[in-house]
Design a protein around this nucleic acid. Structure first.
Lengths: 234, 234
DNA sequence: GATTTTCTAGACCATGTGGTCTATATCTTA
DNA sequence: TAAGATATAGACCACATGGTCTAGAAAATC
């Protein structure tokens, strides 16, 4: 590894708990491969220090008063300095983990974890990897899958909606309507007369309980008529 | 643990490679805590065996000809027997991992991994956990974050779209159009005359380069006019 | 202060849209 | 075989919609 010949990695710490802050600084200094370029007890100060010292990685506490950690991740990203964020938290709140990762945190570790694991996490992140301990990734995935389950359940319910009463031909017509095509256009696309299209459209309106094409299109979109084909294409 | 007093867990294997199938069966039988109730070299047969033997867990190969593994996950879920699926694959394809997890796989392991790790994965999944080895979860998260990054970049681009040329009043009118309201309705809602509404609408059409309200509404929806307010509220 | 933009609103007209009713051929289902 | 659903299509009518042009008042910008 010959890490000792490498330049030390610049690290910045943001945590509203000063004790904890000092503890981590101590730990990282002892490790010897890190250079703690700054510490801050709130986001605003932290952002200024980041701009000033351009650390490679920021250890960011998630549970802070005022501007919370999620906001912090966003704002650090906005600086566009390529700063990596390793989220720190006292709790393994699935929602928080999910959102932090979604916003681009490179990792998420619990404060209760062994210091060796923290060091390891930092190194992994510095090496360009994303690090989430097994216990947390497990929580993350439960949340992740649950959100998709809810989505698909909602979709199933939606399949029992008014759209299901449409005949195949009516669906074809509706699909063209959702592209903003006129009667004439639909007629020529489906090789039927304009009046036939009108008949279909009128039947669609009655089945969807709407009065005009705009409402029909809106109903279709809101009830997954279009997305069904695109979305979740396995 | 006293695992030896527990009932053996019913396991089913699906993999188009019979050699591999037999190998895993051997491994699990040696382990002693599993009861391999069936093996199949394709999804269709596998589904029938699942219905028959109702295994607690299915080890499902992702890379199969014809019906692929993702389809398999979906169809096993549709059986609604609470069968847990542990995905097996030869490659750490991020997209495949992402989609498998999205569809509800309880875990994902590589065929190249040590057998002890496979056993561990199976046990974790049987215990109701979701198991993704660090290397794979790392790949998953890269993919996951990238998809969100693209999404937000796309949104930023979209803010530079034709919608931005609309005046405030025109936006108000458009918003009402997206609710399927007529000229008359818009006029009374905004306390202006119907002809004024028409003027606004015509201006909107020109700015959005469309010919009718349906297309305008579609443009608005597709370009985040409505969702912008709701979506991604951190 | 002059210019531009925005919001307002009218007139006129062609055409698209929606409502209703009738009707035939085909196909499915009871 | 009769009944029902579906796809087709015509006629007629009222009105909503879209295109174009003109124009005044207010606000913003230069």
């Amino acid at each position: 590894m010959r890490r000792e010949f490498k330049k030390k990695s610049r690290v910045l710490l943001i945590d509203d708990n000063y004790e904890h802050l000092a503890g981590i600084r101590e730990l990282l200094n002892l490790e010897g491969t890190f250079d703690v370029v700054g510490i801050a007890t709130n986001i605003t100060v932290g952002l200024n220090l980041i701009k000033k010292y351009q650390p490679e990685i920021v250890l960011l506490d998630m549970n802070m008063p005022e501007k919370d950690g999620l906001q912090g991740i966003l704002e650090i990203a906005k600086l566009d300095l390529g700063t990596k964020v390793l989220a720190l938290s006292g709790y393994d709140d699935a929602d928080l983990i999910f959102r932090a990762m979604k916003l681009g945190a490179k990792g998420y570790v619990l404060k209760t974890m062994a210091s060796a694991q923290l060091i390891y996490a930092i190194e992994e992140v510095l090496n360009g990897k994303i690090y989430l301990p097994l216990a947390l990734s497990s929580r993350f995935f439960e949340y992740f899958q649950q959100s998709f389950r809810q989505e698909s359940e909602k979709e199933e319910v939606e399949e029992e909606n008014l759209l299901s009463y449409l005949t195949q031909r009516e669906e074809e017509v509706l699909e063209l309507l959702t592209q903003g095509i006129t009667y004439k256009g639909v007629a020529s696309k489906l090789f039927i007369s304009e009046t036939t299209v009108k008949t279909h459209v009128n039947n669609i309106f009655q089945k969807l309980q709407v009065n005009d094409r705009t409402q029909a299109v809106l109903y279709a979109i809101n009830n997954g008529f279009l997305t069904k084909k695109v979305k979740m294409a396995v």
